[in-house]
């Protein structure tokens, strides 16, 4: 079932193209890896899909998912490191986008938050401040928040950057789990060697964009 189609998406900053004529389609349950050199528009593409920037031309269409089915995780540096917030407060805030009228946390919200804390193995950090966490732990907290939003489409911008090897491995496993539970994932990464092998679709941005299945991609570079 098709859930997202991007046609000829182009984004300009001032007069230079940050992203030119990018097209792809995703079915529910796909795991798309977005690769490419610096400056080829990976993050720009993700932001266009997230609705944070408006493409100058082209369209981003969702099929059967609403705005609050989307979870977006920016590059790590953008999360304020001196922000006073406990892990629980952050994770709970993820449940808010399911409630459009009242903004207080009920039993269901708390249950959902506890469930996801457990799923990501961070329930022991619940009352810690996010300032005290390591990079890997912080990424898990943000993932847990996203899961609380019960998103159907996950947009991740370099979630592994700055993590050590163990944390990267853990993140990969977690993402695979989330994906196997039915979520569609788009992940931007520069680490094509370690990431490509668990994506089923690959979008390689460059002078000529490539979009296709992993097999097609492997055949192409072989």
């Amino acid at each position: 079932m098709k859930i997202l189609s991007c046609t000829q998406v182009s984004v300009k900053y001032d007069s230079t193209f940050a992203l030119k004529d990018c097209s792809f389609e995703l079915d529910a349950g796909n795991f798309l890896g977005v690769f490419g050199e610096n400056g080829t528009g990976k993050s720009t593409l993700l932001k266009s899909v997230a609705g944070l920037i408006k493409p100058n031309s082209g369209t981003v269409n969702f099929h059967g998912i609403k705005k609050n089915d989307i979870g977006y995780m920016a590059q790590q540096t953008q999360v304020q490191k001196d922000f006073p917030a406990s892990v629980y407060e952050v994770v709970l805030s993820g449940t808010l986008c399911r409630h459009t009228r009242f903004y207080f946390y009920g039993k269901n919200n708390k249950k959902l938050a506890d469930k996801n804390l457990e799923l990501l193995g961070i329930e022991q950090l619940k009352h810690k401040s996010i300032q005290e966490l390591s990079g890997g732990q912080r990424q898990r907290v943000l993932l847990a928040r996203m899961l609380c939003g019960e998103a159907k489409l996950f947009l991740l911008d370099e979630p592994m950057s700055g993590l050590d090897a163990t944390s990267v491995k853990q993140m990969h496993d977690t993402l695979k789990d989330i994906n196997s539970l039915g979520a569609t994932i788009i992940m931007v990464s520069h680490d094509i060697e370690n990431t490509a092998n668990f994506c089923d679709k690959i979008l390689h941005l460059g002078n000529n964009h490539f979009f296709g299945s992993r097999e097609e991609y492997n055949a192409r570079i072989a």
Binding site: G51, I70, G71, A85, C97, Y103
Partner: peptide, 22 residues
């Protein structure tokens, strides 16, 4: 008080909030 939780989520991570429809 009414918007407390919502304000938290917006100031904590504006992009996330915006992407998920806030």
């Amino acid at each position: 008080i009414f918007f407390y939780n919502k304000i938290f989520s917006v100031i904590f991570d504006e992009n996330y909030a915006k992407a998920s429809g806030t």
